[in-house]
Write a protein that binds this DNA or RNA. Structure first.
Lengths: 151, 151
DNA sequence: TTCACTGCAAATGCTTTGCAGCGCC
DNA sequence: GGCGCTGCAAAGCATTTGCAGTGAA
């Protein structure tokens, strides 16, 4: 269980060490994309988005910037089910979850106040702090359900 | 969107497919180790333990066996903070979720009847069928919380 | 006997790192 | 002008896969 700078929030004093953080266009580009995406993105995905915009940033640099941001607590970092590192801007603006069709991929955004409350309560019961959660619902959307029923 | 046998529980009918499961000494050895370990082990770790015991099993086979066990719902499978797949014998046989410490990896199994109900209701509202869901809560366990607060 | 399982090693894909040049401060 | 940042490509590592031999049923 080696645990270094991988996931999440290490509340660390900002600007404690002597290393300063330079403002480069690559860093701004990454930050801008994160601002616009409400959900977690993998580094690979973010890199692809940057390419689409023309603000191409090297893949290695994308990794470095995201790690650096996570290290400073400016973004949330965790792993998705595939084991990829995923990041999200820390501000919890419009937290929501997804209802996904496992056949056509269609996604519906859903809110889950009950789940939020449950997660918070459960975590507190066990003494856990700095809590965060992921919830995904997989199923067949109406169209795909009909298609499968039909034949 | 590859979400198959990765994290958590996919309630699937046991022994549904035509493939039978043969009882080999490798499979028994892996199963025996899992029985003795109360916590999550990575495949690499389990492989090392097997070597120490003399019941050496190939690394690739270890991967295959663990995946197969997880596929049959006989073990819990998820990812630790390093992105490694980790497995543990399923204490609770029923459907449940996890409360994970993002610092030390400690896991607590929790039940969430409210979440189950919410997921089912939400899916139905949107006309989704054959529903399944994943829920994970990440936070800092009491010990790690104290450690971080202290210094 | 049959065919799933196993072991080996090469392949895959995400992530990290060394090094030289560039640009922010 | 100094030094952190970037890009490139190769390295590193966990995990997967092809293939042929072995053993469970």
């Amino acid at each position: 269980m080696s645990q270094d700078a991988t996931a999440g929030h290490s509340p660390r004093p900002a600007a404690a060490a002597g290393k300063e953080q330079r403002v480069t266009k690559q860093r701004l580009a990454v930050s801008a994309v994160l601002d616009e995406l409400p959900d977690f993105v993998s580094t690979q995905e973010l890199h692809r988005i940057l390419q689409d915009r023309g603000t191409s940033v090297s893949l290695a640099t994308s990794y470095r910037i995201l790690q650096s941001l996570a290290d400073d607590g400016l973004v949330d970092a965790l792993r998705n089910a595939d084991g990829e590192a995923v990041y999200r801007r820390c501000a919890a603006t419009g937290h929501h979850h997804h209802l996904l069709c496992r056949n056509c991929g269609k996604a519906v955004e859903v809110e889950a106040p009950a789940v939020e409350a449950w997660a918070a309560r459960t975590a507190k019961e066990h003494g856990y702090t700095a809590v965060e959660h992921t919830v995904e619902i997989y199923g067949l959307c109406p169209e795909c359900t009909a298609r499968q029923a039909g034949g």
